[in-house]
Design a protein around this nucleic acid. Sequence first.
DNA 1: TACACTAAATTACATAAAGTAAGTAGAACA
DNA 2: TGTTCTACTTACTTTATGTAATTTAGTGTA
Lengths: 114, 114
Amino acid sequence: MAMDHYTQLCPRFEKAMELLSKRWTALIVFRLLTGPLRFSEIDNSLPNLSGKVLSERLKELEVEGLIRRDVYPEIPVRIEYSLTDKGSALTPLFKDIGQWATEWIVLPSDSETM
Amino acid sequence: MAMDHYTQLCPRFEKAMELLSKRWTALIVFRLLTGPLRFSEIDNSLPNLSGKVLSERLKELEVEGLIRRDVYPEIPVRIEYSLTDKGSALTPLFKDIGQWATEWIVLPSDSETM
DNA sequence: TACACTAAATTACATAAAGTAAGTAGAACA
DNA sequence: TGTTCTACTTACTTTATGTAATTTAGTGTA
């Protein structure tokens, strides 16, 4: 009698949510929207994200086909992460979040007027 | 010299991401898109979500103004959670995820053909 | 009064996920 | 051999979440 309202509307949707709601995943994708980045660049651009978890997430995202890992045998080696088409296709999502945030998120600093 | 590329583009966006990428939060909002639900209904509709965490999330979402908590003094008491305008405004977001999922998510069962 | 019923929420405890800081891999070169 | 560099990885600590039992609060009822 459990799962009264559990309508598994769309397994694809659930999979997408599982992916995107995993901690740091969306932010990493967001960072890559503007172009390829190296490991250290992503790491530096997201304070509180540890190199350990970044490493895990990048692997997961590569396995899921959202990002690509390119090795440039320079000195020292340069490794760049970039979005695939599947990853770039998330752009509208971030636009929506941006719009929603602009309209609805009130910051502490906003309360200075009155 | 840390935070090379850390451009705090929009604090509102960061706040939104912090909110939405917290585990279970988005799924709870999603469940409420179709109308008010009681505690036990949300709990039952999301397997693996514990009542403890659901309780925490509902409080956070109420504090953030995404949901409303209505008490109906029936016997026994009935408590309903529903989306505020701020919460409902996330609808396009979920539409985007749905579209993205339809287009890009491939399920194991899809590989049966060839 | 005492006990039962119900839904919501909290608690104590166990497991899983994430953060921290030190260390490794491999390539170049002094 | 030892040093430098970036990209990881590992051992360990802290935080977050899951599990199951318990509490709260209102009502009914023996």
